[in-house]
């Protein structure tokens, strides 16, 4: 099924506790080369047919207003993914 992918990341300036915890765990388990980790989320919206440009624009709006919290998160990318 064709889908639109929305990628959301915590804002660059803000603390990302999850990323920080994973970074420390990686460091402890010997992955010294990795200096930082930041964790966002990927959301998949499924459509019956390949989304139109209008639907993509709509998804962009949904991403900004509904799927992410603009105060602490940024929508990084919204794109169509074929199977």
């Amino acid at each position: 099924m064709p889908k639109i992918i929305v990628q959301v990341m915590p804002k660059q300036d803000l603390l990302d506790p999850q990323g920080k915890a994973v970074a420390r765990a990686l460091e402890r388990s010997g992955h010294q080369a990795i200096k930082a980790v930041r964790i966002g989320k990927r959301i998949e919206l499924y459509y019956a047919t390949t989304p139109t440009d209008a639907q993509l624009q709509e998804a962009q709006k949904i991403a900004e207003n509904f799927l992410s919290n603009g105060v602490i998160e940024d929508v990084v990318e919204v794109f169509i993914e074929q199977d």
Binding site: D13, L14, L15, D16, P17, K20, A21, V71, I72
Partner: peptide, 12 residues
């Protein structure tokens, strides 16, 4: 403009 919000980490 920098965000005026703080994010907390209770485990820390």
């Amino acid at each position: 403009r920098r965000p005026a919000v703080q994010v907390g980490d209770p485990f820390a």
